[in-house]
Design a protein around this nucleic acid. Structure first.
Lengths: 225, 225
DNA sequence: TCATTTATGTGTAATTAATACGCAAATATA
DNA sequence: TATATTTGCGTATTAATTACACATAAATGA
């Protein structure tokens, strides 16, 4: 048997959210192939690092960003997906909160940019497919895992959560029913803080109680919207 | 940067079902490491073959089996998972019908064996973890994708389907409600054939209509139990 | 400062879906 | 031919989801 010459890479589809818009972090490639085209951040895995560590390192190197949530998406292994030769890539989905979203949007604007997922540039390699898979995963997963909170500030008004869900699910939601539903899941703490953005009645702030969520999960009580 | 020396393998957790028992296909390793211990079938990916082709080839070589359904499970990349060095493995879940289950159970019995998932031997590498992940996936997925049918004969009595679900979900099911539910999903054709096994009223045979399922899926109608 | 605009916060009725439950029909077996 | 075994079916009850409208708290502008 001939020696294996497959190389292994990781890629990360990092999502951010603000004001009813879902964005994804892309980098402009500095080298061939696909030089100067947009791509999902990623790179080759080092011999001794775990896949997750590899994703975090590459994100740090290429974009300076630290993600708040990371999960494995899918492994893309089509033999012709990379013109340089056989490269199999383990793709991840990452989520960042609005503060990180704003900070990184300011730096390195030429090479690293957030794009609205409804207005994407042409992408290098098979990254269009990877990104589409990631969007589907995100849309599906917010209905059965409480990952939406990872895209919001730690303290958020209910309207933010509602708007995030309408955006991701692509349909309007009845405010009263949505609130009832989420409250009944028992994973939100209502704080004694209010926030007022512009006109209108100030909103109470809520916070996701991760500890309580894991407790309920252990008891077999499932999160489902 | 030093040259990458990561090797890529695939592993397949193949499930079979019969008489209220879920089994998984294991092989006895012929070489070190873990010589003579049980393991999930798998092996190194060749340079030019797709990951799926690699799984099918390895299964053919090691067990002689042809699977009926295959999906990617998860990629296991812990740097210390293989004592030979860095080996990242893309794990798959495979399903076979009872006929294949019976045939392969007869051949090569010393090196290839079906084990009930509730009575597993010690496993090589991190295969215990991979197998546990696969079982969870199977259990979860039968509730939102019609993959249970892939474990039954093409034509099956309703009671077989019901028993499969009770087995996988680990709880009893009300026959009448289950039947109503499945029928309402509109993906089964009732045949003009009956089957009689032992005493009792003969059962009508049903068949999964994959074409209709995909049609409904395209229309946004989801399969859910 | 008062009227208007804007966003938040809440309850109840109607509909739909899920669950609980028992008996008749068709065959094998004693 | 009586008994045991498995399939096949309907209806009533309960739980969950959906539909829907108005009061409250602040900002804004006349």
């Amino acid at each position: 048997m001939s020696r294996q010459t497959i190389r292994l890479s990781v890629d990360a589809v990092v999502f951010g959210y603000e004001d009813g818009k879902i964005s994804v972090l892309l980098i402009k490639r500095k080298f061939q192939p696909f030089k100067n085209e947009w791509a999902i951040p990623g790179g080759f895995v080092k011999n001794t690092e775990s896949l997750e560590a590899s994703v975090e390192r590459e994100l740090q190197e290429e974009t300076g960003i630290k993600i708040n949530y990371l999960e494995q998406l899918y492994t893309f292994g089509n033999p012709s997906r990379d013109p340089r030769g056989r490269v199999v890539s383990v793709a991840y989905v990452g989520l960042v909160r609005p503060n990180m979203f704003k900070i990184s949007a300011a730096t390195d604007a030429k090479q690293v940019q957030w794009f609205n997922i409804n207005d994407l540039p042409k992408l290098a390699f098979d990254h269009k497919e990877i990104l589409a898979t990631a969007v589907k995963r995100l849309q599906a997963k917010i209905t059965y895992e409480p990952i939406g909170f990872e895209l919001l500030d730690k303290k958020f008004p209910f309207s933010d959560l509602e708007k995030l869900y309408t955006t991701l699910l692509g349909r309007s939601i009845d405010r009263r029913n949505f609130r009832k539903k989420i409250i009944s899941l028992n994973v939100l703490d209502e704080l004694d803080e209010k926030v007022s953005k512009g006109s209108g009645r100030p909103a109470n702030l809520f916070q996701f109680n991760k500890k309580r969520y894991f407790q309920l999960k252990k008891e077999g009580i499932i999160f489902e919207i």
